[in-house]
Design a protein around this nucleic acid. Structure first.
Length: 494
RNA sequence: GCUCCCUUCGUCUAGUGGUUAGGACGCCGGCCUCUCACGUCGGUAACAGGGGUUCGAGUCCCCUAGGGAGCGCCA
């Protein structure tokens, strides 16, 4: 649901002051809807969310869609879905920057009127060649301010851009909650464009206006923005507002040390969901990536809220490790309430066109399979034989286990199972044991062929559990199939 | 190229001047066992390098190297 941001602009400092000693903590997640919801972004969202929750504050979702070329409704949807799946509920928003253009325009005019911004008529070509020359001289490319004092007014057909008058001297200090004291000289900063020729505002400006208007007290974001922060602080001052407190969290890298991206495999939240991960696994993994609380590895959401503190976040980038995420996922699959896992499993089973309500109860399946599944996709795949007719046998397993020697034993077993008084694990286990003993076989020598006959493969839950779950009808039918197969194969090789 | 940031086992991390440098994932081995797993016990493995400061440095300072980010009318 869209809610339009209508708050009247407020210029009082969002920082802690004598006027406002009980300032509420307000954090935000501000993704641009130009692709999937990346787990790097999710981690900053999680940290922001935790910070707000811990301090009894508010968490705001803002969609930064000023780039109309690249923003898509699908991406907005992916962000909303991802946040909801992870349980990162927001208290306000989503706000859309494209709905706030009037406000940005108002403040651009204000800065122009106060001589804190100016019109610039430099063409893109002109700027490009200027940068090329600077690079050639070994300098950092930046706008040389040739229009700064030209006193341009809008005229004629050529539309000018608007640039912010960055202070020429002095330096900007960021007391970053993670990075500490960072000082950047204004010499390094040029006059950035705040309004394009078509009048639309640019990112660095809209961020400042929104963080100001939305009274964001703590900006927690990726450290790829650390270099943007000094210009943003300058703009806060130009707008007579106090900047928020900043915390720049390090990037997440792929195994090759490069910034995590598509080519490293799954990077979007929804992909992890589709691959069978539980939201709590991903949250737990991400909270521990770059942060820790002693030796603790497993955190409930309540524990995260209690223990998490942004100042304890690491400064260095960390490498994404799929194995550890898998381990966490298995941990949660193994230890969460059966019904909780089952409710997730039903969806994955549904994707295989099986009706979970028609076969064994998914809750029972989870109980039987949870210790041998690292993902819900894996659990669903391994459990299909409970719901579907067998689609042939695994060649290797069948050749090894479904032999002419075992065929008569299976037939005897079938007879005994058909007469079973009760269909429970203990009784069935005993039957298998007795039939094996009568044939002079160890338990496993009968259990494994039976497993192949029942599941088609060499892996299943303990054989008695498998029998119980499958139920008498399917069990007897499948045991009947086995000698047929054995006979056919014997005939073929003869 | 310039500016900013980072650096403990392969990976995630603990560590705030005195530790046999701890835990976790992974990997290897034992036990358990009807398969696969689970579990359990044990093992492997790190302070990037070099200078200082100090009785003493993973911890403080400097330099070097390596890595990351930014330098758009993208966000």
């Amino acid at each position: 649901m869209r809610r339009v941001f209508t708050r009247i602009a407020a210029f009082d400092a969002p920082a802690l002051t004598w006027k406002n000693p009980l300032m509420t903590v307000r954090t935000r997640f501000a993704p641009s809807p130009t692709g999937h919801l990346h787990i790097g972004g999710v981690r900053t969202a999680l940290y922001s969310w935790l910070y707000a929750r811990k301090h009894g504050g508010e968490f705001v979702l803002r969609i930064e869609d000023t780039d109309r070329e690249r923003s898509t409704p699908e991406s907005i949807n992916a962000i909303l879905q991802g946040m909801s799946w992870l349980g990162l509920e927001f208290d306000e928003g989503p706000f859309y920057q494209t709905q706030r253009f009037a406000r940005y325009g108002e403040l651009i005019d204000k800065l122009l009127a106060e001589d804190k911004a100016y019109y610039c008529y430099c063409s893109k070509e002109e700027l490009e060649s200027m940068r090329a020359e600077q690079r050639a001289r070994g300098e950092k490319p930046r706008y040389d301010r040739r229009c700064r004092d030209a006193g341009h007014k809008p005229h004629g057909d050529i539309k000018p851009v608007v640039r912010f008058k960055n202070p020429l001297a002095g330096s900007v200090v960021i007391d970053d909650q993670i990075r500490g004291h960072v000082v950047i000289s204004n010499d390094e900063l040029d006059d950035l464009i705040i309004a394009r020729a078509d009048g639309t505002p640019t990112y660095n400006f809209t961020v400042v206006v929104d963080d100001m208007d939305m009274k964001i007290s703590h900006v927690i974001r990726g450290d790829d923005h650390l270099n943007n922060t000094p210009r943003q602080i300058n703009m806060f001052h130009a707008l007579d507002a106090a900047p928020p407190s900043y915390a720049h969290v390090p990037m997440i890298l792929g195994a090759d040390g490069q910034r995590l991206s598509k080519r490293h495999g799954a990077v979007s939240v929804l992909e992890f969901r589709d691959q069978g991960f539980l939201p709590e696994s991903l949250i737990n993994y991400l909270v521990r990536l770059g942060w820790s609380h002693g030796d603790q590895e497993i955190f409930s959401v309540d524990e995260m809220v209690e223990y998490f503190d942004i100042v304890n976040v690491n400064k260095s980038a960390s490498t994404f490790n799929p194995e550890k995420l898998l381990w966490l996922n298995q941990h949660y699959i193994k230890s969460s309430p059966l019904e909780h896992i089952a409710s997730h499993l039903r969806q994955y089973l549904g994707e295989h066109d099986v009706d979970p309500e028609a076969g064994p109860d998914p809750v029972e399946i989870v109980a039987a399979q949870r210790e041998r599944s690292k993902t819900l996709v894996e659990m669903a795949d391994k459990s299909l034989f409970f719901y579907r007719e067998l689609d042939g046998y695994d060649e290797k397993q069948a050749k090894k286990n479904l032999t002419t020697d075992i065929a008569p034993v299976l037939t005897q077993l079938r007879t005994r199972l058909a007469e079973a008084a009760t269909w429970d694990a203990d009784a069935l286990h005993q039957i298998v044991e007795e039939v094996a003993a009568a044939a002079g076989l160890k338990f496993g020598k009968l259990a494994q062929p039976l497993r192949v006959a029942l599941s088609g493969g060499g892996v299943s839950p303990p054989i008695d559990t498998t029998l119980v779950l499958l139920g008498p009808e399917r069990v007897l039918a499948r045991i009947d199939q086995a000698p047929e197969y054995i006979g056919a194969r014997a005939a073929q090789s003869a």
